[in-house]
Design a protein around this nucleic acid. Structure first.
Length: 840
RNA sequence: GCCCCAGUAGCCCAAUGGCAGAGGCAGCAGACUUAAAAUCUGCAAAGUGUCGGUUCGAGUCCGACCUGGGGUACCA
């Protein structure tokens, strides 16, 4: 597909030929994994003898074997992990599986099997592939969220949330996916469709479990300041948008009593309380239960018809912003608290039931939506801010900008910045309002009507109500006798069908009771797994309190930007709650976040329907693990997408072979003192190591590899046409290559290290130390510019003084010729690199 | 509409405000070969999306715009 004949050299290799001096990835891949396993290279000491660092890749979902996307993500995380190890930190780098979820269930239905069969078979496959891929993880810490010993603690945490009032049930219209037959969280609805299967989501009124994440809205927002610079800006921006803090005021309107209907009070949220004098009507969300209570009897039928129309619309249709405004009059009036005006109350679908209070004051002069509505129904328009623009009533364009208050009684003459607080003061004085901060964030709907998830540890008793399952009875295990069809979605949880599982006695009164049959959203499982990794076998709690603060927070988290809101927001929420429970010092889970890009093919995401997928296994067979890893990392900055059609794994393989050959060509004994070696090569080696360190800190992995290529080329040259293979500087260079290469190409690096006469593993070799003296160059090229244009170059000592360089530059023949007798206005000297002469 | 990010040789990408090129891919020429592949050596190739500004000096900083990508959107 992208390769021509070039791959042949690295293809069809046998294990034997590595002894003949031929680079054979197959031989290396056969040789080293067992050695690494014996040495237990990647298990942290966890004894406090070294500073600890925690690096984590977002754990995978076990959908079949690993794919190109995993290969990229895990290559990136492994660079950080291996780099930190070389620097001498005690590194925790674990792996596990996010193994609950729908695909396993769907596969089980199809095959008349249990979801665990498919799940654990896939996990085994992926684990083998990860081992081949040589990720530097501690395999003894492996975990699966579908293991009872894991979800036991998910349930335990749920109970603690419940006790704190952070997990509760309520009736509410919820997002419903008709295909998957389950409810969805707001975060899982994308453009009105199910995030997973793309089916248009409908609304259903149901009693569901929620986490009260809205209690943490402020902290989730404010604590992002500390992440600034350490998380990608766009992720922070997306979370800020999602939380959607907006400052304004609550304004109370009195609804006039009507025949047989009592007086009521209605509150609206407005970001423009300064425009209260401009309110000429009042709108309530048509689908809010409130309107039914409000509507006058003679308007009830029209309202009912309108509500039916609204209900028939999908979210997508309803959210189209260019729709005509629709609505019906309710027959009731609200009194403007500041003007005393009677405002007709309308029901309309442009007001959303679940934002703010589900009602707005209509200020058509200064809000485009309100103006569109007013024009559609002939409602009056009153401008209360003079913005210098034309009258909105005439133009149909609402004036939203700054201006001076008019037609607003005591507010007249004020600018917006003064008018907003002044209006709030007026409202407060009348008891008709107050400053208010509104959030867009909704509570997290966590229950799902599916089988393959963590059971909610609650028992429903007719007498005692909701009764949590006692801690000593956790985990509430999933029944293992449901198979195939019994798992198919019916709109209620399949667990309800497991009679002997559902019917239990109430833990409190001992009477007949039923288990809650919903399971938790799988995002609950993944909201705390990073904590479990610090002590995955701990049996007294979700994690060992004596260990957790040694490792948390995660120093580097790596994963795709598709989790910018969902997983990352939920994990942050869990971390804060667990902190508040006194179990964790950290208030944020991940101090640094790296979003690796996607792997594309020909500019498009790989997909079955496009038929442009690239099989990871085939790439590994063809080019070797190291070449694929190197290609992923070398392709560009980690955040950028990698287009597999634009890169060259065979080029990577070629480079690896070149580097590897250095190790075999070195003709000096291990341990030889490099001090007497070729100075020029030593200087290059030390500069490369020095630069590599800075680049690695900045995640510029692709540039590190480019520098490594230079070092390899320079060493090759030294061997062939310079100092020769026996020069100690050549050994020093080759060893530096091996250690740096170990971050990207562990097999090749290990083999080189071995050829250089060192015992395994190169992963523990330690980052090469830099001799500062060797970074200083003998001479540097100073550029002499006249008016910004280069006119001469001078070879000068790196410690030349400004004055000396200035004299040299002015004496330059080329400069004199360019100046041609003209006087000099200024001379800028940046010793030792540059002089810029500005003529008069 | 609003908010982010990115535009540098044919392509992927580098360049603390200081010589536009580090590296790779593709290309061309040469060496080796009976020949080819592989390997090695060398060469060529853009003035940095556009316009303006700041500066002695701008790919880099500022402003506007264009293009592409992503996010978000009757959010009151």
């Amino acid at each position: 597909m992208t390769e021509k004949a070039g791959y042949v050299s690295v293809q069809s290799q046998t294990e034997e030929n590595s002894d003949e001096g031929v680079y054979s990835f197959a031989a290396m891949e056969a040789r080293w994994p067992a050695v690494w396993e014996d040495l237990n290279v990647f298990a942290p000491l966890d004894d406090g003898s070294k500073e600890r660092r925690y690096v984590l890749d977002m754990f995978p979902y076990p959908s079949g074997d690993l794919h190109m996307g995993h290969a990229e993500a895990f290559a990136m995380g492994d660079v950080v992990s291996r780099y930190w190890r070389q620097l001498g930190y005690d590194v925790l780098h674990p792996i596990g599986w996010d193994s609950f979820g729908l695909p396993a269930e769907n596969a089980a239905i199809k095959r008349n099997a249990h979801p665990s069969e498919w799940t654990y078979a896939n996990i085994d496959t992926q684990a083998e592939s990860f081992k081949r891929y040589a990720i530097s993880v501690d395999w003894s810490r492996r975990l699966q969220t579908s293991d009872p010993e894991y979800y036991r603690w998910t349930q335990w945490l749920f109970k603690r949330f419940y006790e704190r009032g952070l997990a509760y049930r309520k009736d509410s219209p919820v997002n419903w996916c008709p295909k998957d037959q389950t409810v969805l969280a707001n975060e899982q609805v994308v453009n009105g469709a199910c995030e997973r299967c793309g089916t248009i989501v409908t609304k259903k009124s149901l009693n569901q479990w929620y986490f009260k994440i809205t209690d943490y809205a402020d902290r989730l927002l404010d604590d992002m300041d500390a992440l600034q610079g350490n998380w990608p800006d766009r992720v922070l921006a997306m979370q800020r948008n999602w939380i959607g803090r907006s400052e304004g005021a609550h304004v109370k309107f009195t609804v006039e009593a009507a025949a047989a209907q009592p007086e009521m009070e209605l509150t609206v949220f407005s970001t423009r309380p300064d425009t209260v004098f401009g309110a000429t009507f009042f709108v309530v969300a048509a689908d809010a239960p409130l309107v039914l209570e409000l509507v006058a009897p003679e308007h009830a039928e029209a309202l009912s018809e309108y509500r039916e129309q609204v209900k028939a619309l999908s979210d997508i249709e309803r959210q189209a912003t260019d729709r005509e405004k629709t609505g019906v009059f309710t027959g009731r009036y609200a009194v403007n608290p500041l003007t005393g005006d009677r405002l007709p109350i309308w029901a309309a679908d442009y007001v959303l039931a679940d934002y703010g209070t589900g009602a707005v004051m209509g200020v058509p002069g200064h809000d485009q939506r309100d103006l569109d509505f007013a024009r559609a129904f002939d409602l009056p328009v009153r401008a209360v801010v003079d913005t210098g623009q034309e009258d909105p009533a005439v133009t149909g364009v609402a004036t939203g900008g700054e201006g001076t208050m008019i037609n607003s009684g005591p507010l007249n003459g004020l600018a917006k910045a003064e008018a907003v607080p002044a209006a709030i003061k007026l409202l407060e004085d009348k008891g008709a309002g107050e400053k208010f901060v509104n959030f867009r964030l909704r509570d997290w709907l966590l229950s799902r009507q599916r089988f393959w998830g963590t059971p909610i540890p609650i028992i429903h008793c007719a007498d005692c109500g909701e009764v949590p399952v006692p801690d000593d009875q956790l985990p509430v295990r999933l029944p293992d006798n449901l198979r195939g069809e019994a798992l198919s979605p019916k709109g209620t949880s399949p667990l309800a069908a497991a009679g002997d599982w559902v019917n239990v006695s109430c833990p409190t009164c001992g009477g007949a009771a039923r288990r809650d049959t919903d399971t938790m959203d799988t995002f609950v499982d993944s909201s705390w797994y990073f904590l479990r990794f610090v002590s995955p076998q701990y049996t007294e709690g979700p994690f060992d309190p004596a260990k957790v603060n040694d490792w948390m927070p995660v120093g580097q988290y790596v994963g795709g930007v598709e989790h910018a809101i969902l997983h990352l927001l939920y994990a942050r929420f869990f971390t804060k709650v667990i902190h508040d429970m006194g179990m964790l010092e950290a208030t944020e889970p991940f101090s640094r976040l790296l979003n690796q890009g996607q792997v594309l093919n020909g500019g498009k995401a790989m997909s079955k329907s496009l038929g442009n997928g690239v099989d990871l296994g085939q790439q590994l067979d063809r080019y070797g693990v190291d070449a694929v890893r190197l290609t992923m990392v070398f392709a560009g900055p980690p955040e950028d997408d990698v287009d597999w059609a634009d890169v060259s794994p065979s080029g990577s393989a070629k480079f690896l072979a070149r580097a590897w050959r250095l190790g075999r060509d070195v003709d000096s004994a291990a341990g030889t003192d490099p001090a007497t070696g070729d100075a020029a090569l030593r200087s290059i080696t030390h500069r490369t190591v020095h630069e590599a360190k800075a680049l690695l800190e900045g995640h510029k992995f692709n540039v590190v590899i480019a520098k490594l290529m230079e070092l390899v080329n320079a060493t090759r040259k030294a061997i062939d046409t310079g100092a020769g293979a026996a020069d100690p500087a050549v050994r020093e260079a080759a060893e530096a290559v091996a250690v740096l290469l170990s971050l990207f190409a562990p097999y090749t690096a290990e083999d080189m290290w071995n050829a250089l006469g060192h015992p395994a593993s190169v992963a523990n070799a330690g980052f090469p130390t830099v001799d500062q003296a060797l970074l200083v160059q003998q001479s540097v090229t100073a550029v002499v510019q006249v008016k910004g244009k280069v006119r001469d170059r001078l070879e000068v000592s790196p410690d030349i003084t400004e004055e000396e360089l200035r004299e040299l530059a002015l004496a330059s023949e080329a400069v004199q010729k360019t100046l041609d007798g003209a006087g000099i206005r200024t001379v800028i000297v940046r010793a030792p690199k540059l002089v810029n002469i500005v003529p008069a």
